[in-house]
């Protein structure tokens, strides 16, 4: 609401839960901006959240869980609940963990929902190893980004 009032870009951190849950915040931002004389279409929105990809969704979950759990303990005092983490396999969850195909579908689903211009993946978290990060960057470059650009480059 404050960002909408001021007519400045907005950056949202999405740690967990259903992606649709955050749509309310984005709608409120755009409505407030409009009501205060700003053009919502010219105001960029960035979202950020946990990101981990591996060859399969199951493998991604197995590899990433210890890191997200320990990382949350360090930053927040408590781990990441397994029940909630299990939901990351569902496309409706905002946590971008899964196979490259799963991540592509999630990012596109979130893009359709939010209409945001930028997504920032929180990758270096809870001691994810350099080798894992390299593999993640490789998969982003070879599989995820090319697929996403096919959809977003048409001026959507």
């Amino acid at each position: 609401m404050k960002a909408g009032h001021a007519g400045v870009p907005m950056f949202l951190a999405h740690l967990g839960g259903a992606a649709s849950h955050f749509k309310g915040t984005i709608d409120a931002y755009r409505e407030t901006a409009k009501a205060n004389g700003h053009d919502p279409d010219s105001l960029p929105i960035a979202t950020a959240g946990f990101f981990y990809t591996a060859e399969t969704t199951q493998q991604a979950q197995r590899e990433y869980y210890p890191h997200i759990n320990e990382g949350m303990k360090l930053t927040n005092g408590r781990g990441f609940p397994k029940q909630q983490f299990a939901q990351s396999a569902d496309i409706r969850s905002v946590v971008n963990v899964g196979s490259p195909q799963q991540i592509i579908e999630k990012i596109l689903y979130q893009h359709e929902l939010f209409g945001h211009q930028r997504y920032i993946g929180q990758m270096d978290f809870g001691g994810v190893t350099m080798a894992q990060l390299r593999n993640n960057i490789e998969l982003i470059g070879t599989e995820i980004l090319p697929a996403i650009r096919k959809y977003t480059s048409k001026g959507s």
Binding site: Q58, Q61, R62, Y64, Y65, K82, Q83, F85, A86
Partner: peptide, 8 residues
């Protein structure tokens, strides 16, 4: 018991 059901 519940957490052991999860595959990660």
């Amino acid at each position: 018991q519940k957490e052991a059901e999860f595959d990660f």
